[in-house]
Simulated scan of single mutants.
Amino acid sequence: MAIVITDGIHYLKFVDGELATTRKLELAYRFDSASDAINIMKNLSGRKAEYYVYDTNTDYILWRAMTEEEVEARREARRRKRHKQDNIIDLEPKANENIPRVQIPSKGIRKKFSPDVRKLLYIHAGGRCELCGKEMALEDVTIDHIKPLAMGGTNDVSNLACTCFGCNHLKGSAVPESFFQRVNDIFMFQMEKKMKHSLKWKLAKRLLMSMNE
């Protein structure tokens, strides 16, 4: 198991006992356990939202700090769950009723996809990320749920997309339309900060805004 701390592009390393960053995975500091990496993460203060604990072997994010929106969404989900439990009608069978109990499988269980499925999606996407268009090697592919499991999506191949790690992490549990709008908002905001006095940007901005109308 290779556990590192990354933001999808940079990796944390230690130089003379101080934290530093590198773009090369082989230079990243490899933690003995997820708990060791999480303890470091909790001391990153301002960088918590960007970095997360990642297992390079299983291609899974083991831990990341939640944004304020995610914290509020989780609180709201708990409030709804408590409210639902308070209003549940007792449907438990009585002792003298011979009613079999049926176990309903969960739809939102994340599964590990076979190499054949990954290769099929990779070929269908032409070897490119279906969100940013970047060319990828097959071993670098991550599988994204087009409709997130948290929103009722399934593990069916028709709901899967071939994406790069950075886009998959950025998209998170958003539907494609929300993801694209978020990317657009980030781009427009950052360009406005850097180029607001540029005539070329003013013309480009006017054109981009007219296209979105």
Rank of each mutant, 00 (worst) to 15 (best):
G172L: 00
N184F: 15
K205P: 01
E177C: 08
G172I: 01
M191R: 15
L207V: 10
L203D: 10
L208S: 15
W201P: 03
A174I: 07
S198L: 00
Q181N: 13
M209S: 06
Q190W: 08
K202P: 02
V175A: 15
I186N: 05
F189N: 15
L203P: 03
A204D: 04
M191W: 02
A204G: 07
S173I: 11
K200Q: 07
S210K: 06
M188W: 07
M209H: 05
A174S: 12
M195K: 08
L208D: 01
N184S: 12
F189A: 11
K171S: 03
V175F: 11
K200T: 11
H197Q: 09
F187G: 04
F179P: 03
D185E: 12
H197E: 11
V175L: 13
F179K: 04
F189D: 10
D185Y: 03
L207Y: 12
K171E: 00
I186W: 03
L207T: 02
K202T: 05
K202Q: 08
A174Q: 08
F189I: 12
L203W: 10
M188V: 14
K193F: 05
M188Q: 07
L199S: 12
F187E: 09
F179C: 04
A204N: 03
K171H: 01
F187A: 10
V175W: 05
A204F: 01
E177S: 11
G172K: 00
F187C: 15
